[in-house]
Design a protein around this nucleic acid. Structure first.
Lengths: 163, 163
DNA sequence: TTTTCATCCATGATATCCCTTGATATGCAG
DNA sequence: CTGCATATCAAGGGATATCATGGATGAAAA
């Protein structure tokens, strides 16, 4: 484990009545390499109405980063509240996914990620994001403009194949 | 791997019903030398209706760069948004090609690159470009004028050989 | 018992791999 | 230079694996 991986690729996946959703294959491979197992970490985004996901190595990295921030703050003589800094990472949920890449989105994650019956997955190099497609098109910041093109492509494809 | 190479040479290659296309031999050698493997990165161009390509493992380098930037930002006490920094690299697609140099252009890349049943490849030193021949002749900026001559040469050759 | 939840199996559609083929390029001997 | 054998090229086709998803099974909780 602990390999440096790249999260890339995108796709729209369904979310069924049980909250089950499938991570697109390309992203799933990255998550597996990062975790060394069939396990994915999902977390609320700190400011945007979406979820973020990554493998186990990234989670450990977040922990290590806090130590680094603390040490360099001390070295500069700045204040750094390690307790506060650790709170965001505490809402990361790690769940197992089956061989097919499918896992259960808890009702709470669905709530905070505003996920309904479809999820738009896309890699962002160091992690991946999970949006409600409608919310993404309407509310994602300008920096995501090229990714909106991708989503529109997928929605078009799905429409062509009859829903 | 990771050698400094020059992408040069040009050619027109077919794109079959499965989206399969062959990188011309000369360019393929550069890609192999650059990546040390049978892997190529393809990406949308940021402003032109074409695709750009280069050796594989480039994405991994971008990820490593982001980590480096993050670390030095932390050391200086600066802010660094790792999430946003990862977005541009997310639209680079890495794919393996077979020994013959053939790989699959995903439907999405075909869409954004406006590729139909033929692809015009040409080296541009630091990378190579991939155009729909018709689009290239009609819409490429003036700077590509000399390259248009090359394309016309290839199209002439193909016409002579029937088809 | 009834419900809940995770694991396992089933399925149709699609993509990936590998072998083949015809055309062209290259090397070498006569 | 000519002729032939070999290597390499681009492209086609088909068996097989993988994808995403729907549903069934079975164990533990309510």
């Amino acid at each position: 484990m602990s390999a440096l991986v790249v999260y890339a690729g995108s796709g729209v996946s369904g979310v069924d009545g049980k909250g089950r959703t499938t991570i697109p294959a390309e992203l799933r491979d990255s998550v597996q390499q990062s975790s060394g197992a069939n396990s994915v970490c999902i977390s609320r985004h700190s400011s945007l109405p979406c979820l973020i996901g990554f493998g186990g190595a990234e989670r450990l990295k977040l922990r290590a980063d806090i130590e680094t921030q603390w040490q360099s703050a001390v070295a500069r003589g700045d204040a750094f509240d390690r307790e506060l800094a650790g709170i965001p990472a505490s809402s990361i949920f790690e769940t197992a996914f089956e061989a097919s890449g499918r896992f259960v989105l808890s009702p709470m994650l669905k709530h905070f990620g505003r996920i309904d019956d479809r999820a738009f997955y896309f890699g962002a190099t160091t992690h991946f994001m999970l949006w409600n497609p409608d919310v993404f098109l309407k509310e994602a910041p300008a920096a995501f403009e090229p990714v909106k093109d991708e989503l529109n492509y997928w929605l078009n494809e799905q429409a062509k194949r009859g829903k």
